[in-house]
Design a protein around this nucleic acid. Structure first.
Lengths: 254, 254
DNA sequence: TCAAAAGTGTTTCACATACACCCATGC
DNA sequence: GCATGGGTGTATGTGAAACACTTTTGA
């Protein structure tokens, strides 16, 4: 048999799942939707859906993202669009048992977005919310967390989320992707709090400031300043053209 | 419509394609097979084939690898096996037009293997060979290359190969993966020539030696020495347990 | 004796860390 | 004034780059 005999393939469903990350109130959060039907009815899951027959994988991910959040994906391959979030392919999950009903291969994508008002529960989702990644992954042996209890994510979505978080944690080391978590204009302190939330560490504000302002192309001053609640007004910046950071930001030892 | 309604999905074929890299005669080489039938009949392509209905993606990749080369994959997730090459998922390619006959989504995998005798042309392949990556990607405005002319790779395999090469180039910076290109016992010089071939640069032998022998867990001496054609005998090493290199090997500026 | 490759020592410079210190605002 | 966060200066340590130098073999 030829490796590409088109008549001899088993039937596969192909979906995209989205790991949409943002930083809210000093915590790394992911977008989850409530499943309205079995299997895993009532459980939280990553947003996603089937790839259409004439649709590229990245296009399917961008469409699902728009349906869930109204965000326009800012695919590095295609030109930028307004209010663009960063979107990239993450990995593909194809365990034969991952969906109890049929064989489904899911191409997971990673989206990094600035803090958004509230997820609109339109589209397929019966409910959507931002949930703390620490809660979702149970890395926190609950010392009296308020907030909704999540329960484990549906399907293999905990694994997918963990992979997406790890990708985000490592990519902000050597790229300027952390700015994707910020609004168009932001201060050095806001950017530092992004790093602190994603990595879960505290960084020295002085050294961080020198580092990011000294890396050419990372940040460009936008001219304005912000008035803040107590404290000296901070300079506002926009993301510069640089995409790769050399030398990288160093994540402190664990 | 539910995002997981199992009856509403369009038909997809799912394949795995393999970027199998090795270092031969100081050059980074990839395994390619000759296509025996249309489309792209007679052209070179990456080895690959359909995923079976009950098969995990990594298992399908390992099976194709064994069929083409006799190598046993050494999946980090599963226990090691003899003569193990490194295997990891690379990326997934799903452009609706990438296969002219039907909708095929290909989950590409990356394999790093030590220098092997010669590819066995068994399995599906009508012919198989190691080809220089520089030739395959046409990064070399041919100054009288002998050797077989390749022509462009079939499908979008040039893109997949380029992505795999870039992955390998960056991963050997911060991991001990370069040892996957070496036989079980090797010298520091051999390891250095791996880095030089993959990166296409020259490295200082003195600093390289200090760096790799000084990184704990990267190399462990196996006791023996090699006699070489002219030159002082070199100490033999095996790969140590470390998988991540800290601090990383630094790739010289381009 | 010479070529070739292995391995060591030393200098210099870039950069990360730590922390003292000043600046500009609200209360 | 004082708390709060923004921003600068400076010492110290680690490690990469460059390169002189020694070691050990084959021819």
């Amino acid at each position: 048999m030829s490796p590409y005999d088109p008549s001899a393939f088993p039937p596969f469903g192909v979906t995209v799942d989205l790991v949409v990350l943002t930083v809210r109130r000093h915590a790394l959060c992911a977008l989850v939707v409530r499943r309205g039907e079995p299997p895993f009815q009532g459980r939280w899951a990553l947003p996603g859906g089937f790839v259409r027959g004439d649709e590229d994988l990245a296009a399917a991910a961008a469409r699902e993202l728009a349906e869930e959040t109204g965000l326009c994906a800012h695919d590095p391959a295609s030109p930028a669009s307004a209010n663009g979030a960063h979107l990239e392919q993450l990995a593909t999950y194809g365990d034969p048992q991952r969906d109890p009903r049929m064989r489904v291969v899911s191409v997971a994508h990673l989206v990094l977005a600035p803090d958004l008002p509230a997820p609109k529960a339109g589209g397929d989702a019966h409910g959507a919310r931002w949930a703390s990644v620490a809660d979702l992954l149970g890395q926190e042996a609950g010392f009296g967390r308020e907030g909704e209890q999540s329960g484990p994510l549906a399907f293999d979505h905990a694994r997918i989320l963990a992979d997406g978080v790890e990708r985000a944690r490592s990519k902000i080391e050597y790229s300027s992707l952390a700015t994707a978590f910020c609004p168009p204009e932001f201060t050095v302190g806001e950017l530092r709090r992004v790093y602190e939330a994603v990595w879960g560490v505290a960084l020295d504000p002085r050294n961080f400031h020198r580092k990011v302002t000294g890396t050419p192309g990372f940040l460009v001053p936008s001219g304005g300043t912000t008035t803040r609640q107590g404290g000296r007004p901070a300079q506002l910046f926009r993301a510069g053209g640089a995409t790769v950071l050399n030398p990288p930001m160093l994540r402190p030892e664990v």
